[in-house]
Design a protein around this nucleic acid. Structure first.
Lengths: 142, 142
DNA sequence: ACTCCATAATTGACGTATCAATTGAATGAT
DNA sequence: ATCATTCAATTGATACGTCAATTATGGAGT
């Protein structure tokens, strides 16, 4: 009835399960989805960015980027404008309102992550983050 | 321009990024989505299960379970039947066809996971899997 | 028997990600 | 100067997951 899985086999299941749990909880706790948060966070530090750089930074599909930004624009969090020197690219920046609101989100996110990782030592965190990076590398060209 | 994130802060981003990479690649490599694989895999060992137990086992929303199973049934991989003693529950089992096909999927999955974790020692795997479990626990009641 | 509650499965509405195809604007080669 | 390529952004189709509400059934308690 119960079935044995090697550690290797389980990792995938655990990863997926964890993520499925995280996404809705993150949003409930912080008031914003984690992808949106990443976008705003990046803009917060980078002041003005074009979409394709933003895409590379947060590492989600550019179609999704477009849709997120449109929504964030509609919510008054960011502005978007074409640049005259190259009419293909659109520059994105936080509005004042956006800059103000992200501060609250940052706190909520910190609290969330803190809860999730509350019993992890600095060393463990760095081990974990390395492992995740290695996995990412290992499947990069599949 | 570049912004400093603590290891703690990055974990979330890494996790999500990794998962977003995994899902489409898993499906491309194996020919089936990882959720469907989990369902079939569980059925492979359990012979006959009702949906709510299946739901607990694979840990995704029961709405999603219903939809997956309908599709798998349409594809001739599983059969579903109400049980007379309690007309609420539906029992699911693999068809012969399904049982045959999952064997191929198992191999593809093993190859995929092998690639993803090829440079991980047994010990690392067990550390990683423990960490993932801990995180899951830490956010359980959020 | 009848009302009340719990449970299993389903459906609907929604958010988010992917990929493939398209649009529109620069750029490079002949 | 023009044609082909390349690139940024967008759109459409599709898949998967959540939550909330619904349907249908079963089981108590009175």
């Amino acid at each position: 009835m119960t079935c044995l899985l090697t550690d290797q086999e389980q990792i995938l299941h655990l990863l997926k399960g964890l993520n499925n749990q995280i996404s809705p909880k993150f949003e409930r706790c912080t008031g914003i989805s984690s992808s949106r948060y990443e976008l705003l966070h990046h803009l917060y530090h980078a002041d003005e960015v074009n979409q394709s750089n933003l895409q590379k930074a947060v590492n989600i599909d550019s179609a999704a980027i477009t849709r997120h930004l449109k929504q964030l624009e509609a919510d008054g969090m960011v502005t978007r404008s074409k640049i005259p020197s190259d009419n293909r690219v659109t520059l994105v920046r936080l509005t004042e309102e956006g800059r103000k609101r992200i501060i609250g989100y940052k706190e909520e996110k910190a609290a969330f992550v803190n809860q999730m990782l509350n019993d992890f030592s600095e060393e463990e965190l760095s081990i974990l983050s390395n492992m995740l990076r290695r996995m990412q590398t290992n499947i990069r060209e599949l």
